[in-house]
């Protein structure tokens, strides 16, 4: 097991190097750079930018160097100083920009994920154990509707409803008066009052999908002979199902946890834009549009790292849960 863990950690190194290389290459691939974007924006607002000034910007941000050199500067400062570079667009170090955003994204995603699990797993189990019952049919209908409605549309509808009927200020995670206020109980209450909307919006599709997954997995397991054995021992139906088929039916669910890690930090971009949430999605979108290369690159690196770590964690979790994997 220790061997396995060490080997997996070793494999992570070349993976991350390759990812960072590709990510950086892709970001620098489109024609033009931040200097072009800046000049264009400046000219549109009526300022005059001379070619010398443009060249100065380029030199200041070291955009005139070959990209391999830029790549080397960027990655080496990440490794040595934990410095992810500088955001041209925001005129701030990337570190100052992304950590608050990541924290906020994590809170939103984590709470919606918990909502999904708490709702979907019991409903999925019920649907499987009482297959084709009225309850199962209702769960199925709800599930397919949930899957079919686009999230952003659902977000718009909910925003309209909460504005029209509850008079709540919509959008964002804080009411305007709290945005720049320091943390207090009042701010926390305001935050929690705002949180339910993205939670519900982001959770619906996930809940619908997970119900189907849990139901299908459990239905497969319920037919296995070891369930009959458990009943033949004299176990209560409920205990027998929880201890044997449900335990095994959750294995594929655990093995897909690596996706969850990515979701936790990537934040659903379109919904976040619609709800104007202070999460990572919209920031990454803007950074890519403005060719704010260090910011965009850092986000992509962060997502890749979490994918790799998430895969490792879910594999380890699976090995812990399922001895058939552990012993191989």
């Amino acid at each position: 097991m220790t061997n396995y863990l060490l080997r997996r950690l070793l494999y992570m190194i070349p993976t991350l190097i390759a990812v960072s290389f590709v990510a950086f290459a892709v970001i620098t691939l489109p024609p033009g750079d931040y200097a072009d974007t800046y000049v264009l924006a400046a000219r549109q607002s009526g300022q005059v930018v001379t070619p010398e000034q443009e060249q100065a910007i380029r030199e200041f941000y070291k955009l005139d160097r070959p990209w391999i050199v830029q790549y080397w500067d960027w990655t080496s400062s990440i490794i040595t100083r934990g410095d992810f570079g500088f955001s041209f667009q925001w005129d701030l170090p990337v570190n100052e920009l992304i950590w608050p955003r990541l924290a906020m994204t994590f809170v939103v995603s984590f709470s919606s994920l918990m909502l999904v699990w708490i709702i979907a797993i019991p409903i999925g189990v019920y649907s499987a154990v009482r297959q084709y019952s009225v309850g199962d049919m209702l769960a199925t209908i709800f599930g397919f509707i949930g899957l079919a409605i686009p999230n952003f549309l659902f977000a718009l509808v909910l925003m309209y409803v909460s504005f029209r009927y509850f008079g709540a200020s919509v959008g964002g995670l804080f009411s305007p008066e709290y945005i720049n206020a320091p943390w207090s109980f009042a701010k926390l209450g305001d935050f929690l009052g705002k949180l339910w909307l993205p939670m519900v919006v982001l959770g619906t599709a996930g809940t619908a999908g997970l119900i189907r997954v849990v139901r299908a997995n459990l239905l497969d397991e319920l037919k296995k002979p070891y369930v009959v054995t458990a009943r033949a021992k004299g176990m209560r139906e409920r205990d027998a199902i929880r201890k044997y088929p449900l335990r095994i039916a959750l294995n594929p669910f655990v093995s897909s946890l690596n996706d969850v890690f990515v979701q936790l930090v990537s934040g659903a971009t379109i919904v976040s834009v619609v709800l104007s949430l202070q999460t990572t999605g919209p920031l990454l979108l803007e950074a890519l549009r403005a060719e704010d290369m260090y910011l965009a690159g850092s986000f992509i690196m962060m997502l890749s790292l979490l994918t790799v770590v998430g895969t490792l964690v879910s594999d380890l979790l699976l090995a812990w849960l399922d001895p058939r994997i552990r012993f191989r």
């Binding site: 070891y226 054995t229 458990a230 009943r231 033949a232 021992k233 004299g234 176990m235 095994i248 058939r324």
Partner: peptide, 25 residues
């Protein structure tokens, strides 16, 4: 009936590999 199962009357099956749980000792 649960008091009878596994207590007064017990049962064994054809395929012990699938009739026993793979994830419990």
């Amino acid at each position: 009936i649960r008091a009878v199962r596994g207590n007064d009357i017990a049962m064994i099956f054809q395929e012990p590999m699938s009739a026993l749980s793979p994830v419990h000792t």
